[in-house]
């Protein structure tokens, strides 16, 4: 039972994180090109982030195309990630030194090359900060999805609550924390590989 819960929990988080990446990274990049669009998108992201998770899951269930179960859970989790991930991508790209972009344009690099070879690499530390927050957060919130039919570690906690079984509550919470820490550690290792070396060295 615990194995099944853990697997379900893990796969839900993984799916949500992958979809969030595929969705919010391009959106974050796109909105750097248009300030009006950016403030609109970031406001929506902030608003969604403020909705209590239990009610967001509940709202998803009422949408006919989603219903009870994984689809609703996924959509809600991806929407939550919009704030930490989308905002950090936007800011990471935005704060790249203007003079670097100016020089690159002046040398004849087109905007696609500038994005790919300069802005995104230089934004990796900020993007990763947002991504790690999104992953840890998703792992935690995924537990709530148990109330809309997900059979994951959240169920361990929920059943522990109804039966007043402290062992169940604690083991559910610990396993969730373990998944979060494991994912964050893996991301930390990946981050070290991806963040360009030139951003880490200092004048000796």
């Amino acid at each position: 039972m615990i194995m099944e819960y853990t697997e379900n929990h893990f796969s839900l988080v993984l799916a949500a994180v992958i979809i969030s990446l595929l969705l919010w990274v391009p959106v974050g990049v796109l909105i750097t090109r248009n300030e009006k669009l950016a403030s609109m998108v970031l406001n929506i992201a902030n608003t969604i982030f403020c909705i209590p998770s239990l009610s967001l899951f509940a709202v998803m269930v009422t949408i006919p195309a989603l219903g009870l179960g994984r689809r609703s859970a996924l959509v809600a989790l991806v929407l939550y990630s919009m704030m930490p991930l989308g905002r950090n991508v936007y800011q990471g790209v935005k704060v790249v030194d203007k003079s670097v972009i100016e020089a690159a344009r002046g040398m004849g690099m087109n905007s696609w090359r500038i994005l790919w070879e300069i802005q995104l690499p230089l934004a990796t530390p900020v993007i990763f900060a947002g991504f790690r927050i999104a992953v840890v957060m998703t792992t935690g919130i995924a537990a709530i999805a148990t109330y809309i039919g997900e059979r994951n570690l959240g169920r361990l906690i929920a059943e522990g609550l109804t039966r007043f079984n402290i062992e169940m509550i604690v083991s559910g919470a610990l396993l969730i924390a373990l998944i979060a820490i494991a994912l964050d550690t893996v991301l930390g290792i990946i981050e070290k590989q991806i963040v360009p070396k030139g951003l880490k060295v200092r004048r000796s």
Partner: peptide
Amino acid sequence: IQQIGLLPHR
């Protein structure tokens, strides 16, 4: 340019 704008990651 005055700020030079060397790519810091290169």
